[in-house]
């Protein structure tokens, strides 16, 4: 199997994702420039974190018009696995590959810290190695991570088991205090209708070595590898 890490101008977690796949998962991986249109050799695409196009105008709003995005759309339509992390999540929402939007944090400040998320869906391609209710310790680093969607969309996400992760305390309780950015229903990650496109604000690629403070992110990345192979 092969991973592709998409590089938009201004992506800055592209290398972190690349190293996590190459060194921790030990899987083949390429950088994919944002002007690429042929994605046929990849099994999974990672849209990494960062500030694509400086986040000017609105996070992800310009990147969604990058040439590579129509190829990403086709790739997803054919059932390929796509994961957007942080800025990647924002881009996928702007491109309507995922529902909802990411608003500025309710603190109105950038927040970078380790926190806890609870696994809400343990059968998806991105989380099937976890068990439902498992608490993962994974960092966030964003200014616009406040997930919002219309009430009917929220209901649909809940009913169809499309909420991947929720912010929680260390014991797995989903509380207001454990919500770092004001996300609706403490949502930290969601799935698309077909379950092959995921977006999340926490950075699993930053939690891949005990040296970095946690290895919990590996479970998410390894879920992808096992599902494909």
């Amino acid at each position: 199997m092969k991973f592709g890490v998409i590089q938009f101008p201004g992506s800055n977690c592209d290398q972190d994702a690349y190293f996590a796949v190459r060194d921790i998962l030990q899987q083949p991986v390429d950088y994919v420039w944002h002007q690429e249109s042929n994605l046929s050799k990849y099994d999974c695409l990672i849209l990494p974190g960062g500030f694509s196009y400086g986040d000017y105008l609105r996070t992800g709003a310009i990147a969604r018009f990058s040439p590579v995005m129509s190829a990403v759309q086709e790739f997803a339509d054919r059932g390929g696995l796509v994961i957007g992390i942080c800025n990647g999540f924002q881009i996928l929402c702007e491109a309507h590959l995922l529902p909802g939007a990411l608003l500025p944090n309710n603190t109105l400040r950038f927040r970078c810290k380790y926190l806890h998320v609870r696994v809400e869906n343990d059968s998806s391609s991105f989380t099937h190695l976890c068990h439902r209710g498992q608490v993962l310790r994974i960092p966030i680093a964003h200014h616009s991570g406040c997930y919002y969607c219309e009430p009917d969309v929220l209901k649909e996400l809940e009913n169809k088991d499309r909420i991947l992760l929720r912010y929680c305390d260390r014991d797995g309780n989903v509380t207001e205090e454990s919500n770092p950015n004001g996300s609706i229903s403490n949502i930290a990650g969601v799935l698309n209708e077909h379950g092959n496109v995921a977006g999340m604000m926490p950075h699993p690629e930053r939690a891949v070595e005990s040296l970095l403070g946690s290895e919990d992110g590996v479970i998410i990345l390894r879920s992808i590898v096992e599902r494909i192979s």
């Binding site: 800055n12 977690c13 290398q15 972190d16 190293f19 996590a20 974190g49 400040r109 950038f110 927040r111 970078c112 810290k113 960092p139 680093a141 950075h203 690629e205 930053r206 891949v208 070595e209 040296l211 970095l212 403070g213």
Partner: peptide, 24 residues
């Protein structure tokens, strides 16, 4: 320091708040 991304590049092995920062 919560307002600063102190982890990007995934080399920060001692996070802010200790006596010195350590980067592998």
């Amino acid at each position: 320091y919560e307002q600063y991304d102190h982890m990007v590049q995934t080399n920060t092995v001692v996070l802010p708040g200790s006596d010195a920062a350590v980067v592998r």
